[in-house]
Simulated assay, not measured.
Amino acid sequence: MISKFEYTTLAPTEDIQQLGSILEQCFLMATGDSETYINRVGSENFRVIYRDKQVAGGLGIISMGQWWGGQRVPMAGIAAVGIAPEYRGGGAAIALVKHTLQELHTQEVPISVLYPATQRLYRKAGYEQAGSYCIWEIPTETIQVREQTLPLQSVDVSNHQIFHDLYHQQAKLIHGYLDRNQVIWQALIQPDGQETVYGYLIGNKEKPQGYIIVSQHSTKDGAILKVRDWVILTATAAQTFWSFVASHRSQIEKVRWKSSVIDSLTLLLPEQTAKIHSHDRWMLRVIDVVKALEMRGYPPGIQAELHLAVQDDLLVANNGKFILSVANGRGEVTKGGKGEFQLDIKELAPLYTSLFTPQHLQLVGKLNATETALSAATQIFAGDSPWMTNFF
């Protein structure tokens, strides 16, 4: 199926225009928006697939990192996968994704993450559910947190570097958080239409304890304050976060923010009036088994050994038996072993990210393991439920 298509980088202006037209049709963009998006990501970071010398579709690759167990793992974010209508259903999409994975493997990229429009396509390429993207909502009048314990400093969001160090302090502690590419930061502060994006440092400007980036929206259900991004590093910063959003109650009916499925910020609320507005799952693909397992962090104090047997029909270097030895929060992988923990490459994703426990995965037939191997894997991959705040 792959041989029917030609895979290459995006270069000629005419091809950029063709891909832009495809993306605008696929993602309901306004005319010209695709050019802005392609320029933001960088045309050199797009890949296209041709059929009979015509652009059949393309995608963007955003190079960044992701935090796992307190360690940064290099990651390729896959974005804007679009196929022209006349080429859909003919294998163009899976060919494009598989070619991209093969390229990333030669570049020794450990993992890849994407948001799926359809899971079936990406599962064929070895991706699986791996973490959450969750938007919470609360009626402003029910927050009932009034005391502002720290000062707030208004800042210009276009200078987003002012937020980077604070974000990094929080990101490395959260399972699945991004080490953001500039593309992600630019999208974060970019206004949608006529809106204005506001930014505030929480605490003293010389030593802030967090920040909040917001925008206001009028909808048929009333005015909404959207928290585009936030960092909370202390308990007093968390208190100030809630008092700040509550101060909008005279004009704003609801507040929305992104957080984990179990949000510790809601513990400061007097009642359980905050609800999950939407919940999606992103998918991850292990591209290099050895690098992915060795670069990830593990629970400190655990010393264990897991004998894996991995099946990967696309990237043959991932096939076979591996021994993962974990001590002092780090892992080492060697070839060989007993193969007591058997799974397909896509099932390695939710195990790797701690989205599901080994017992849960075995219960639904996603792996086959001995009791000893299950026990070792449970210790090794114990962690908080993975999540991130950025959609790409």
Rank of each mutant, 00 (worst) to 15 (best):
A117H: 13
L114Y: 07
Y133N: 03
V97D: 10
A95N: 10
V145C: 09
Y127I: 01
R123F: 02
D156V: 03
I111C: 10
I111S: 11
R146T: 13
S132R: 04
P110G: 09
L96T: 10
E108L: 10
P151S: 09
T149D: 07
V157A: 11
P139Y: 07
E137Q: 15
R146M: 06
Q129G: 01
L96A: 08
H99P: 02
T100P: 06
E137N: 10
L150D: 01
E137P: 01
K98W: 02
T149R: 14
I138G: 00
K124F: 10
E103S: 06
G126I: 06
D156E: 15
A117P: 00
D156G: 03
A125Y: 12
L121M: 10
G131Y: 03
E141P: 00
A95W: 11
V145Q: 15
L104T: 07
P151I: 01
L101P: 04
L150P: 05
V145I: 15
A117G: 06
K124R: 15
V155N: 08
H99L: 00
S158M: 01
Q144G: 02
T106L: 12
V97G: 07
L101C: 14
V109P: 06
R123W: 04
L150Y: 00
T142W: 02
L104Y: 07
P139V: 00
Y122V: 05
V155F: 05
V97N: 10
Y133K: 07
E147L: 12
